[in-house]
Design a protein around this nucleic acid. Sequence first.
DNA 1: AGATGTATACTTGTATACAAGTTAAAATTC
DNA 2: GAATTTTAACTTGTATACAAGTATACATCT
Lengths: 225, 225
Amino acid sequence: MKFPSIWLQGASLGEAIASELRLQIISGTIKRGEILSENRIAGEFGTSRSPVREAMKTLSGEGLIQLERMGAVVMGLSLKDVEELYDVRYLIESFVQGHVFMNPQPELIQHLRQIVDRMELAAKHGDPIEFSYQDLTFHERIITEANHKRILHLWKSIRPIVITVMFITTKQVFSGGGTRVRHVMDKHLQLIGEMESLDEARIQTAVQRYFDDSRQTLHLSFPEG
Amino acid sequence: MKFPSIWLQGASLGEAIASELRLQIISGTIKRGEILSENRIAGEFGTSRSPVREAMKTLSGEGLIQLERMGAVVMGLSLKDVEELYDVRYLIESFVQGHVFMNPQPELIQHLRQIVDRMELAAKHGDPIEFSYQDLTFHERIITEANHKRILHLWKSIRPIVITVMFITTKQVFSGGGTRVRHVMDKHLQLIGEMESLDEARIQTAVQRYFDDSRQTLHLSFPEG
DNA sequence: AGATGTATACTTGTATACAAGTTAAAATTC
DNA sequence: GAATTTTAACTTGTATACAAGTATACATCT
């Protein structure tokens, strides 16, 4: 599996290497416990140590590897780890919805519907790359709405992992046929519907239900599941 | 103001520079909007660009600066930003308490009391460096208890900012006399007391009250407040 | 054999060099 | 004087070089 090159537009070598390594770690090609050497990685990618070093620091900041005196040890991302990631995603979105629900913001709802439309289009074209990207955009759009710098930063710190996990699982979902793809889109539409109620309790329940369901999807579409 | 050298034991040049810059940004010596050049910083610290570059990436990961094509722009940390940081701290501790409250864990309570004892000692010696470090340790000990890798990682990502803010505010609190110091310790003791109740609702209320009060303290002891 | 010392091949941390791109000011042209 | 081009001084991204420390395997000694 290779990281979508479209997502590397204008990226530095360091970012590209980080993305590639991230995908390999999450997909399990590089296994937990393995030890990464800057020299070796640089050799494999045909670059110097500089961009590799940058990539290592990035991945360390995401918790995928741990920098030590002698080599970087791969922490990996088990199914349980992804569930923990979903815990954080739930915390973020729950918090955000709690801060946004009172603002009707018709623009937000409209924009979210537009994004789901793009997902439908991507589904029709059988394009999991575009589909997962729109999925990410959907959630990012909601989070942005809160105007909360620290929460947004928190999101940005897990964003690369989230998009990578989405990419992997979405490919799996696509290979599973149209009904599962349809289900993913419906989930988003349901969430939008509840957001329109402007009833915080209902919205919170909807968010919770959304992530509960996502965990289910996860078990069906993540390598380890 | 200088960053406590005790906290830099075994740190690389990159980490030391990051810590020093972080303190200057948070304390306002380096102001929001200012543009940092790797070359200039390297010159000021008498090092090469390599460790500076590492420090810049660290600070960028913490949201204190933003890396751009031409220089890194300082985002700073306003009073509002610190309040947002407390939002996240509250989210973390609330989540963690929700996962830990059922486990009696006498060791945890015992350890927390021990930490408060150390705070008392530091207070007696008029040592804000040790005091703020124990304050940090107190919260870290609670968070560790949840055994939740992603949440722990989230904590670690804001940890350097938290300790720096604590260092600044604690120095201010110390200069304000004994009653304010006493108040901080009492807050921690109250939280421990409620944790012993094993009643989740009471614990959640206590956590909320703790951070509400911290915000008050913040307004009295943060430069901008 | 077992313990100890040593050589060697790794590792990261830091310094330096160079290329490519951006900004801003100065010089030139109209 | 104003607009435009050119130039010069910056910036980061990447490559390379060197220093210092660590683990491992091997040799030596008891």
